[in-house]
Design a protein around this nucleic acid. Structure first.
Length: 222
DNA sequence: CAATGATCATAC
DNA sequence: GTATGATCATTG
């Protein structure tokens, strides 16, 4: 447990202090048990880092550190620094979206400043043996921001035009739309082909692996 | 074996 | 159901 950081440097310092530690060590320091598997604890590593860095543990809208305008993201990587999973950002609004601009969207707000915490998280490593990498602060470059905006526009246009069922994880250069639900039976409101209300699977925005991989490469110069 | 589609826990 | 945290697991 930890008190919230009062400024960016303090957050960076405490995050840097975790670099090289195993998840077991961090869990012990925070009096947490290490699960044998993430199957029923998919958000465990993220929650652990929230606890260790003084972010609010649990559900709350907006960034993890609202006063600092910083979003915390753990990212599982292999020994070469390649992300092992896509990065979930936020759920996607499907109705009432006409006139919504990228700059005022929830996803743009969340990606404005991100504290990435890489986790060496190869599958053959027990959860407790996975280690924390070098954390760093990232803000999208003008080019990255443009790519995100373009994908967002394409996806949101399709949703607004009633073509949500035609969207799959393949579209988008850096951003993709995928299910984000308890299961495939979950339903939420959306716009149908003829503009009528329909029910569909809730979706979320995810950053594709090549994009987050490039962010890591840019930062670590490899 | 990467990537898309499906799923798990918890709070409210 | 929505929003937080993501990874699992089947498909191509």
């Amino acid at each position: 447990m930890k008190t919230p950081p009062i400024n960016e440097q303090q957050l960076l310092d405490s995050a840097s202090a975790l670099c090289g530690l195993t998840l077991s060590q961090v869990a012990n320091d925070n009096k947490l048990e290490v699960p044998a598997s993430l199957l029923r604890n998919k958000g465990w590593i993220g929650n652990l880092l929230e606890l260790a860095l003084g972010a609010h543990a649990g559900s709350k809208p907006q960034q993890d550190f609202p006063d600092l305008n910083i979003e915390l993201k753990t990212i599982p990587i292999d020994r070469y620094g390649k992300p092992l999973e896509t990065t979930f950002v936020c759920v996607t609004p499907l109705i009432g979206i006409n006139g919504l601009q990228w700059q005022q969207s929830n996803i743009a707000n969340k990606l404005r400043k991100v504290l990435w915490v890489p986790i060496l998280s190869e599958k053959n490593l027990a959860i407790g043996e996975r280690t924390i990498g070098f954390p760093f602060l990232w803000q999208p470059s003008p080019i990255e921001n443009k790519l995100l905006e373009q994908d967002w526009e394409e996806i949101m246009d399709m949703i607004a035009m009633g073509n949500i069922e035609k969207i799959n994880g393949k579209i988008g250069q850096v951003l993709q739309l995928r299910p984000k639900a308890a299961n495939s039976k979950a339903l939420t409101d959306a716009i149908g082909k003829d503009g009528q209300p329909i029910k569909t699977l809730p979706r979320g925005f995810y950053l594709k692996i090549p994009f987050t991989h490039q962010i890591l490469k840019n930062h670590f110069n490899y």
